[in-house]
Design a protein around this nucleic acid. Structure first.
Lengths: 137, 137
DNA sequence: TTTACTTGGTTACTTTTAGTAACCGAAGGT
DNA sequence: ACCTTCGGTTACTAAAAGTAACCAAGTAAA
């Protein structure tokens, strides 16, 4: 179904309230921060499991390196999305969980994840077609 | 308000349908593709204006370079999110608009944009607090 | 006693990606 | 003859991501 006029007005409202001639646009700022390879995925995982340890997360996010997981979690912690709890044991135990702010982010993120799951086929089909088109030229 | 059990189950469902032991996880794949500094913002802009020319987009996305706009638009075109129409005039005129697939992406992205606008204050507050905490140590 | 192993990182280095600035083509205007 | 326009491309540099080795400090086995 097509995008309604009402929805388009909503986009306009968000943009005008957020961006018009201001130096910092929150939408762009947030998109730039959470738009990277691992951040959203990490938040979704924490949303599913509630409390996760460092290596538990690492196992679930296949392909992520120790360093990138650290960097990603630190950034989320800095933004108040994730709470880090260190238990001073040996070997150390660290638990990560979403804050209230993080949980509020979970909802729109879940919508995006659902879109991704539903439309990944279409996207892959389009990519294939595009590749073919360019080879033919 | 907290995340409901139902919502958490939904996250689990999306993940289990998408990721369990599969080589490619669509959620991660899409998040990795559209998770960059400019892509989501560009889609939102095209969602608002419907048809936009290259330089028109460039003016609205302050800070983006010509090259990055080209790269971003090409990637979106490849994924079937954006339609590029070249009018063979001199000087050339190129119009970009969302495809049907792109418009379907607009809805979850808008939810995310609304979250960003509503919560940017909280995030900035958290960042400030985090910075202070680390200076004190 | 020495060795290996644990967790949750950090450090140094390499590779990939993003960003900057200059250039392009082809017509129109001065 | 030269500048402008639009929508790029090319060559180069800076920044970010990825890789691999290392660490502390205790526990467990050899």
């Amino acid at each position: 179904m097509p995008v309604t006029t009402k929805e388009r007005e909503k986009v306009a409202a968000v943009f005008s309230g957020a961006c018009t001639q201001k130096k910092v646009c929150p939408v762009k700022d947030i998109m730039a921060s959470y738009g990277d390879k691992w951040t959203m995925y990490t938040v979704l995982l924490l949303g599913q499991h509630q409390k996760m340890r460092f290596n538990e997360l690492r196992c679930h996010i296949s392909g992520i390196s120790q360093r990138m997981l650290t960097v990603t979690l630190r950034s989320l912690e800095e933004d108040g999305i994730v709470l880090r709890t260190l238990y001073p044991e040996i070997p150390p135990r660290v638990e990560y969980q979403l804050t209230e702010l993080g949980e509020s982010l979970l909802k729109p993120l879940l919508q995006l994840a659902i879109w991704a799951e539903e439309n990944v086929g279409e996207v892959l089909k389009a990519r294939k077609k595009y590749g073919k088109k360019n080879k033919e030229e």
